[in-house]
Amino acid sequence: MVSFLRFLINGISLGSVYAIIALGYTMVYGIAKMLNFAHGDIIMVGAYIAFCAMSYLGLPPLVSVLCAMAVCTALGIVIEGLAYKPLRQATKLAVLITAIGVSYFLQNTALLIWSSNPKIFPSVFSVGSLKLFDGNLVITSETVLTIVANIVIMIALTLFTGRTKMGKAMRAVSEDKGAAELMGINVNRTISLTFAIGSALAAIAGVLLCSAYPTLQPTTGSMPGIKAFTAAVFGGIGSIPGAMIGGLLLGIIEILGKAYISTELGDAIVFAVLIIVLLFKPRPRSTTSSPTASPSSPLSPARR
């Protein structure tokens, strides 16, 4: 029973990281209608920046995280502007291949800068840990921090999209780009802002991920990135609470699957969940955006 609780808490901790990554995915997908394959690699860049700031410059953890967020935000905006913006009217296939290209670009640039030798990520917040059941159940401060960060981010994002003018603009763009533009919303700037927020979240997720699993490599981000997309789909892509619930569930499924079914099949179980969800859930929104709408008229209703 205690071991089950331990797995559950590990699952919630991992799931919280997935949830933060999934929030970035879900926002970008909801607004730009594109699968940002490079999102996972922005996580990796964020983790490396935080690592360098802490290990080489000796900055305190909080400042390092802010540094990482700043760099990733800039990176997200630059990627969007250079690679994705010219393809706004292009086919999904072209955008997806470009995103894969960006993902490989980031991975290989990181490989050249930081080499493939894994770096050991320093513990960000070690305030000690909570011991329960005579030390059988240890909850580390990182776990608590991850869960708290997740909740704070979700509440902040919900308030942002619900209450602020920019947030409302985002929701308008995600529902109908053309109509939003007619209402005087700057669609391009809104999409850039979405990428900026998503990338900043990715930086936080990178630091949290590497605090829990402290080996940092150029490929660190790709698998969690794909799994977080799974989580976003799980919770219904485009929805903020959905991303959180999906992330948590996926983390728990992964840890429990690894513990009770097979360690090697952990990833396979997660992907099987993705496939089952995609096949049996009501049709995702993207498939309803009618394929007859010619690329030159973005005025196709997003929801039907």
Binding site: L35, K92, V233, L274, L278, L279, P284, T287
Partner: peptide, 9 residues
């Protein structure tokens, strides 16, 4: 499935 979903699956 179509588009992005097909690719990811």
């Amino acid at each position: 499935l179509r588009g992005d979903y097909l690719a990811i699956v």
